[in-house]
Design a protein around this nucleic acid. Sequence first.
RNA 1: GCCGAAGUGGCGGAAUUGGUAGACGCGUCGGACUCAAAAUCCGGUGGGGCUUCAAACCCCGUGGGGGUUCGACUCCCCCCUUCGGCACCA
Length: 846
Amino acid sequence: MSTREYNFADIEAKWQGYWEEIGLFRMDERSPRQKFYALVMFPYPSSVLHVGHGRNYIIGDVVTRYKIMRGFNVLSPIGYDAFGLPAENAAIQDGLHPAISTEQNIKRIRGQLKRWGLGYDWSREIATHEPEYYKWTQWVFLKLYEKGLAYRAEAPVNWCPSCATSLANEEVVAGRCERCEAEVETRYLPQWLFRITDYAQRLLDDLSLLDQWPQRVTVMQANWIGRSVGAQVEFRLAETNQPLPCFTTRPDTLFGVTFMTLAPEHPLIEKIVRDTPGEKEVLKFARRARSLRVQERTTPELEKEGIFTGKYVINPVNDEKVPLWVANYALMEYGTGAVMAVPAHDQRDFEFAKKYGLPIKVVIRPEGEELRSEEMSEAYIEDGIQVNSGKYDGLDNRTAMKRIVEDLAARGRGKEAVAYRIRDWIISRQRYWGAPIPIIYCDKCGEVPVPEEDLPVRLPEKIDFTPKGKSPLATVADFVNTICPHCRGRARRETDTIAQWLCSCWYFLRYLSPHASERPFDPTLVNKWLPVDQYIGGVEHAVLHLLYSRFIVKVLHDQGFVNFKEPFKALFTQGMIVKDGAKMSKSKGNVVSPDELIDKYGADTQRLYTLFIGPPEKDAEWSDRGVLGAFRFLKRLWDLVSEFAGEVKDANIEEIEPEALPPRMRRLHRKTHLTIKKVAEDIERSWHFNTAIAAVMELVNELGASRPQSPAASQPVGPSKAGPSGPSTDGQAAVLKEALEAAVMLLSPFVPHIAEELWETLGHKPSIFHQSWPAYDEEATVAEEIEIPIQINGKLRSRILVEAEATDEEIKSAALADQKVQKHTEGKEIKRTIIVPKRLINLVVK
RNA sequence: GCCGAAGUGGCGGAAUUGGUAGACGCGUCGGACUCAAAAUCCGGUGGGGCUUCAAACCCCGUGGGGGUUCGACUCCCCCCUUCGGCACCA
């Protein structure tokens, strides 16, 4: 037997070396071919990657290789999101400097990526912790600072006690730290923020440009931005006439306002209660309410509490005087921090009013019904007809809403307004392992940005990482003490670092000119290559990385640095791979290591199984048995090609004449073309690699059945070895060759190493990826005979074989001639006949 | 509570616009090869009924209940379950 061993280890090493050598994935800036930017979310270098991470990169690699074969000039870069807390926490634990552990991890991960056979342009590799990179992250910060989009404020922040740093709102999930799941506290600290709220409307509007994003991601972003349309209405303090604007989405209920509430943080509180009898009590209440933890403060379960300030405000629609309260459920960050309360038509206000005996005044009633406040057990929040609303009585509330706002606007006491749920983005981190914020504080000049030519502000290396609630950088005198760029006087540096999210907001621009030392990116190249044609990553970044990147790109666009508005044209979010029903994690002990798997079966097997496991956008359960199945398939393919290679070598595919072939070969020829058709459709239409692979498996099964020694293909092999693939059957050899080559090519983006090797076995010169993707012959996919199922009253009763071109009449008479059909129609009348061309016939009988 | 996705054999999953439900793989059962095992190859495999066995045949079957249709995993209505996201945002 001439069958060779499937020695995957050697094969994979061989071709990985070869691709590197010929620069298969090196992007050529001068190529005239159409560009395609394929991007995978770059890895965070914490320890090693598991097979779950692999899915992301494997899918990306399939896209890269497929697009290359489709003739595109592909850019497929890789890098490392290297700043961040885990490295620093590890340093605290075992004393290894983050710079060292990060470098070590990068080395290991780079090795893993290469062993997977992933195609990257390694000459463009970047890591965000390198000064050559973070210099430009700091530059981005300065660009925002110049436009007033970066500012410092003493803000109540989400504080993660375990990470010992502040967090952005996007990093808080259900009151817990997104990373470590510790409960988040509120602290008051001076922080650096980005005015992402200035871009809220555009971030929302431009979601409509992202028609190649999964809808759930755009919906999540829209929800996160949380736009509400309403009105800003100007109430005034009764004594001083000082304006106290509030935002409402229900100006139609203005006549039902019976009190007003202020957020405990509201700056006005202190002023208005000064020297009043209730001063102490009110301030005490406000302080207590403020100290609540974020998740306690913002749940509907919170017991609604408040206190009367002793002051009153005037309602602009009817000049009514209503009491002003402080309430624990009012939020300073939303609207104006002052809320008009309409207990009859808002559930929170209703509960509050009931508790404190405040009046409830109905101003909207359901159509055709009365509504009495004494009988209400909950607020009526639906639409209805205005009552107790002066001249607006009798109007439907939607109309009244518009009129009331118009009338207020005419009197200068209100206007249409929009409020957003999204908050400004807190980017300060009180930790070491990040890019220092490039700001200097000078006693004379105040806050001074570090001049561009002084970048990067380098991270000092020698440092004590132990978290103290403020940045470790504050303890390094050499770092803190500096000179003011303006007056040359003594000054101090900002000691917070930039949240790592900013590093990943622009890395996809850096890939175009990764080594440029004079600028962050090359504008010509960036404008040519962006937006990214296909971005691939996890859905967990829906409102973090993906929202932040959109924001930063818009800022850069506005300043003329780039000419596109959105960074990622198409997004694909792959599902998670779980094991034993849970996300893979070291602590759960359910991590499947790719390294062992590759040792045992090879990278191609792992790749094939990962792609075969299910539709890539869905979560999937990892199965060790499934891996074995993938391996078996590759081995079968290997044996088949090895076995046939010699016989088909001289055959000429061009000379196939289907009519001259025996039926089995004709079927294989047809199957080959059907498979070519299906695989491209599955890849292009829905990325369903699992069904594409299944189709090739079918082809290989069919091929296996064509083996000379297969009982189905020939008589038991006699003393003569000539068999059906002997010299007299060149046409048959050509069909076999065609099928083998198609199978190998169609699998090549999925299992590139074995494909290259078998391509060579079949007598071709590498690389298979220089071949263009196979095309199918429509004519070859047409069957001469087709099977038509026969239904009687919608139930399947029989099947008949008919000529593909058979007319309806012919099909019908063939069906009626069928024995089983006769049995079922005996003595009955055929009422109707439905024929779906080439699909089925249904006889309706009675 | 609101929004979204999903529910198909023992398991992962297939089924263009409504048109043969269960492709492909795993598992399992039977067989071949073997002293034996592994590997490999061949064949069966949704449930049930009928049947000595088999074939043939019949019934049921895509979370549950209705409906539309010649025909429904697919469309419509109601309900259940699971998973994601949001959740005092005025």
